[in-house]
């Protein structure tokens, strides 16, 4: 299932998108504080950050639902800043409940084509084709209330793609779904996006989601860009303290000569970068032990503070309250 997401490659078929010095203020609050960001044609860029960081504002400015205080939005090199949402040629999938409740799945998918005055036969053909693409070929006649949340979001994806937009906008489309469906649909979105070669902006606050599907991840904080890079780089080499904290879990560990040494300069170390049980390690006591399946997460109290350690689950791991030692993983 994860094959499609381990080697993401952007195609050259899509349209380039650019935010230039984009600023959006609400009174004295800066939702976006001079965002400069370019999406390559055909790439899926995840805009990641905590709530209120400005990621949804950026997406809404690109969709045309909001007007920037200053700066420009470019689609395919063309400045679209003053162009209304209905003429922007973007396809958007919302968080949830965006399907038109009085229309069937097929009518929802065909809506954009109807607005573009495409003939009824062609509309029906394209709607059936798109529903097939998202695996709902047999649900064209169903109303939104007759479908599950995951199916509704698939229809919403088909609806966004039906008009062959230049850019696909995904506004936390998985956040209202349960965990299993979320992973399924996430992979589905990536498969369709790669097949269509469409430039995609994926807004999410879920770092695992961003790392799993994106060609590149842009981390936003307080309206400013912290880092834009591949998921691997963002995770292994966070550019700022904020990125390190927000993307994955980070320990601040004093390290000298490849060993944990109290008083030395601190370094950011991921939980899987630490291990327990080496007799030469830093002594501590296990505070909590959480079994997460393949790995077990231990929180160990040491003289340098609490350290979070992810180790492969095995029977001989120390339990909560037991002494142990912590070292950097080899």
């Amino acid at each position: 299932m994860t094959d499609v997401i381990t080697a993401p490659q952007a195609t050259e078929r899509g349209t380039a998108v650019e935010f230039r010095a984009l600023r959006r203020t609400y009174g004295s609050a800066h939702a976006l504080d001079g965002l400069d960001l370019a999406l390559k044609p055909g790439e899926l860029l995840a805009l990641l950050g905590p709530s209120g960081c400005g990621k949804t504002t950026a997406l809404r400015l690109l969709a045309g639902f909001d007007t920037p205080t200053s700066g420009q939005v470019l689609i395919g090199g063309k400045d679209v800043t003053g162009i209304p949402a209905s003429k922007r040629d973007t396809g958007m999938v919302f968080q949830a409940y965006s399907l038109f409740p009085t229309m069937t799945a097929a009518e929802n998918v065909a809506f954009g084509l109807r607005m573009r005055r495409v003939g009824a036969a062609e509309r029906a053909r394209r709607a059936a084709e798109l529903l097939e693409v998202v695996g709902l070929g047999d649900r064209g006649g169903s109303y939104p209330h007759e479908m599950s949340g995951g199916q509704q979001q698939r229809v919403a994806l088909a609806r966004a793609l039906a008009v062959s937009p230049s850019v696909l906008l995904l506004d936390e489309p998985l956040s209202a779904l349960d965990a299993r469906v979320r992973v399924q649909l996430r992979d589905e979105i990536r498969r369709v996006q790669l097949a269509e070669g469409i430039t995609t902006l994926f807004v999410t606050h879920d770092q695992a989601e961003a790392l799993a599907v994106a060609d590149r991840v842009a981390v936003l904080n307080k309206g400013r860009l912290e880092q834009v890079d591949t998921p691997q780089e963002v995770y292994t080499r966070p550019a700022t303290e904020f990125v390190a904290e927000f993307v994955g879990v980070t320990n601040h560990v004093p390290v000298e000569d490849g060993r944990i040494r109290p008083g030395a300069d601190t370094r950011q170390v991921r939980p899987e970068g630490l291990t327990v049980g080496d007799p030469d390690g830093l002594s501590g006591t296990v505070l909590t032990s959480t079994f997460l399946g393949a790995v077990t997460r231990l929180v160990v109290t040491t003289e340098v503070g609490e350290l979070i350690v992810d180790v492969t689950s095995r029977p001989d791991l120390p339990a909560a309250g037991e002494p142990t030692t912590v070292t950097l993983a080899p």
Partner: peptide, 20 residues
């Protein structure tokens, strides 16, 4: 009782003007 803003924005995103 309906997600008005989302529905209107979805329609606009698909090419409908506000009256439509």
């Amino acid at each position: 009782a309906i997600p008005l803003r989302t529905l209107v924005e979805a329609a606009r995103n698909l090419g409908a003007g506000l009256p439509s």
